[in-house]
Design a protein around this nucleic acid. Structure first.
Length: 415
RNA sequence: GUGGGCGUAGCUCAACUGGCAGAGCACUGGACUGUGGCUCCAGUGGUUGUGGGUUCGAUCCCCAUCGCCCACCCCA
């Protein structure tokens, strides 16, 4: 009995030509990141479950209900990574990278896993490309990271996305703000949605983020974090805004943005597009000054972001229609004798990075038809006549122009 | 996890009130012995997502299940 397998729910294959688009996006990222001094770090996609629990936060939705966790054969509780930052921080601490000159800057790319119900722009296995920077608390680094992100998006072909910013304070000022929020919402508890009633205890900041209408109405008069920041946080955020202004990087302040991961401090930001449906975030990140020490490293301020490959790809493929790369030359070979000549001719062209296809079988007509369907620029015909004379017939499929060429001069076609 | 929509050929979709599963595109070949596109012809392709039920008979009605899509939630 034949069994037909299909990919797991929420783990779709990515096929050409879309994979070529992904390659372009990644190349844009690598180029831009390199100019900013970021080098690639590759970490395992499987980690101790505890790592994510301690960084993202046990009460976060990601950890509470979306992790792919299991016990391995050694009895260890492990998880597929739901995001990239925790692993990079782990590696930074594990390899004592704080002993290298600061700042240390890394980027990463690869699959992440969250057990969610798939929808437009949201999969269970999804790919992120992200960057992390360790070792400076200066707002200049916040600005640099954001400017780098925008430069990457622009080089990838995605200008004009909107950038939203906020500061959510630090361990000095946030607890007091949380308390003020609790006090503000306490009299309105009954009016809040069930989720927000739960958030009121666990993380009242998230009420600010809620999209339920009556919660939005209730929070209208809620205290703003921007008015509760300590002097240091206020100064940090102000300096960042000044730098972005100086760079003419447009942004919108969003005092209600809080982010879903517990480890953020001070700066948080999000890049969104209106064309993505409900899942509109293209990239997001922020500062996490406490996480390195939380993981047993020295107190090390740090920050980073991650961008979603599927969402970037979706935006780009909406803007341009994708097509398969076209061969420059299609070599039609006729008969057994021609195969060797076809292969060596193709190899010579390929050695010069020309994309070449060999039509190994079928009538000349069917090979020409295939060449045409692939969009080949030239067809070169190698059959008995050509083998005898040592001169290959060629044809330009766009113009219809044709001629003959010796095997050695074939490169002249492609100038 | 919750709600709604949808599952028929590789793709887009037909099939009357329950009565022989079809078309276009794509693919392969031919018309045209070794010259593509256009045209014409032919061929390949299906356990109608799966399993049950009702019925003389189910793509159609019922139940279950799986999958996809969209939204909630959450987030990249």
């Amino acid at each position: 009995m034949k069994t037909r397998f299909t990919a797991l729910k929420g783990a779709p294959d990515v096929l050409p030509p879309e994979t070529n688009l992904w390659g372009r996006i990644e190349n844009a990222a690598c180029e831009v990141f390199a100019a900013y001094g970021y080098d690639e770090i590759k970490t395992s996609i499987i980690e101790p479950a505890e790592l994510f629990l301690r960084s993202i936060g046990a009460s976060s939705d990601i950890v509470a209900k979306e992790m792919y966790s299991f016990t391995d054969k050694g009895g260890r509780s492990v998880s597929l990574r739901p995001e990239g930052t925790a692993s990079v921080v782990r590696a930074y601490v594990e390899h004592n990278l704080s002993l290298r000159p600061a700042p240390q800057k890394f980027f990463y790319r690869g699959p992440m896993f969250r057990y969610e119900r798939p929808q437009k722009g949201r999969q269970r296995q999804f790919y992120q490309i992200g960057a992390e920077c360790f070792g400076t608390a200066h707002p200049g680094m916040d600005a640099e990271l954001i400017v780098m992100l925008m430069a990457f998006l622009e080089r990838a072909g995605l200008p004009a996305l909107s950038l939203e910013l906020n500061s959510i304070g630090c361990r000095n000022c946030r607890p007091a703000f949380k308390q003020r929020l609790r006090e503000f919402f306490a009299p309105h508890l009954d009016g809040l949605c069930p989720d927000c009633q739960r958030r009121h205890e666990q993380n009242p900041l998230r009420i600010l983020d809620c999209k339920v209408e009556r919660c939005i109405a209730i929070r209208a008069g809620a205290p703003l974090i921007s008015e509760s920041l300590c002097a240091e946080c206020r100064e940090h955020f102000g300096a960042l805004l000044g730098l972005l202004d100086a760079m003419k990087t447009p942004y919108t302040l969003n005092p209600h943005m809080v982010r879903g991961l517990d480890y953020y401090t001070r700066t948080v930001f999000e890049v969104t597009s209106g064309q993505l449906g409900a899942q509109n975030a293209v990239a997001a990140g922020g500062r996490y000054d406490l996480l390195v020490s939380e993981f047993g490293g020295p107190e090390t301020p740090a920050l980073g972001f991650a961008a979603g490959m599927e969402r970037l790809s979706r935006l780009l493929s909406a803007a341009e229609s994708l097509s398969m790369p076209r061969p420059e030359v299609f070599i039609a070979s006729l008969g057994r004798e021609a195969a060797a000549a076809a292969l060596s001719t193709a190899s010579a062209l390929r050695a010069r990075d020309k994309r070449v296809e060999v039509g190994w079988e079928g009538s000349l007509k069917s090979q020409l038809r295939r060449a045409d369907k692939m969009g080949a620029r030239y067809v070169v015909i190698i059959g008995e006549d050509e083998l005898r004379s040592g001169s290959f017939k060629w044809k330009n499929l766009g113009t219809g122009e044709s001629g003959e060429t010796g095997a050695e001069e074939i490169f002249n076609l492609l100038s």
